[in-house]
């Protein structure tokens, strides 16, 4: 999902696709994610070149033994840039989800716990956020605080928070209806303690599965913002930004610099979705 279809996609997100994938697809996807994470962690060790080392004798070089995936308009090695770009790309999506989760879980749990007017107000609030095209928050935040990776993450996080809030509220309500909650209450366990020590840990499995699926969408949305130039700035080799920089080559017939990072995003997103759906099937008895 990209920010373009954000508003519409929102409505279907809870309908987690339940399909049986054969185990080898699942293993392949886990392997892909493993490679992406390894690239993010060990980038300087495994990348053949520095991400910003230019080689003007090899501009727009096709894939070959020196440059496995070719080079871009400044003669930079695409493979190296891709490997170095894993860190900002993945970290951005993680930060976005962390921010959205903190906000969304807080809203959702408080709404489920307090019910009454708190719930009503929060429900209205999330509804209004729902009704807004997701892009608007981001644009507003960026217009106000100027662009940059942090602004993009916060803006996108605000757009994702209502989704998580709604989901958390639903599963928290279900959990709160269970007898152990009353049992702890009768023992005099305070509200905050009960939520933090018993309720949240029990919600975690379900929530994690959902978040993994959202991760793919977060990655795509952030990449789109970076592509528009609202997030990471050069010389970063964040994948969305790489696509943006490689765009000029497409018209001249050099497809690699734009399409390779683009396909990388797509592959990682597909892998996350497969793993996420599988995880939420496994972790959560309910969905």
């Amino acid at each position: 999902m990209t920010i373009d279809t954000f508003g519409a996609q929102v409505a279907s997100a809870p309908a987690v696709r339940r399909r049986r994938r054969s185990p080898w697809t699942f293993r392949l996807c886990v392997a892909i994610l493993g490679v992406a994470v390894a690239a993010a962690v060990f980038a300087p060790l495994v990348a053949p070149y520095a991400p910003d080392s230019t080689d003007f004798s090899a501009i727009w070089a096709p894939p070959g033994p020196a440059h496995w995936l070719g080079t871009d308009q400044l003669g930079r090695d695409i493979l190296s840039r891709l490997i170095h770009g894993a860190r900002p790309s993945l970290l951005g999506a993680i930060a976005l989800l962390a921010f959205a989760t903190a906000l969304g879980v807080l809203i959702g749990v408080v709404a489920a716990w307090r019910r009454g007017w708190v719930d009503t107000v929060l429900a209205r609030l999330t509804d209004v956020m729902f009704a807004f095209p997701g892009l608007l928050f981001v644009v507003l935040i960026i217009a106000v605080f100027d662009r940059g990776p942090a602004t993009a993450v916060i803006g996108m996080g605000l757009a994702f928070a209502p989704l998580i809030a709604k989901f958390t509220r639903a599963i928290a309500l279900e959990e709160l209806a269970r007898p152990y909650v009353d049992a702890y209450r009768l023992q005099g366990v305070g509200g905050v303690q009960l939520v933090a020590r018993y309720l949240l840990p029990n919600l975690m499995p379900t929530l994690v599965g959902y978040l993994v699926v959202l991760f793919g969408e977060g990655l795509m949305s952030l990449a789109a913002l970076n592509f528009l130039g609202f997030g990471s700035q050069p010389p970063s080799s964040e994948w969305g930004l790489m696509v943006q920089e490689g765009r000029a080559g497409v018209i001249q017939g050099f497809l690699g610099p734009a399409l390779i990072p683009g396909l990388t995003i797509a592959v990682v997103v597909v892998a996350t979705n497969v793993v996420g759906v599988r995880l939420s099937d496994k972790l959560a008895v309910r969905t």
């Binding site: 990209t2 990449a223 592509f227 696509v243 399409l259 683009g262 396909l263 797509a266 997103v269």
Partner: peptide, 12 residues
Amino acid sequence: SVPNFVVALGLV
């Protein structure tokens, strides 16, 4: 799962 700017560039 493919970002739409990538789809767009692919089409182009």
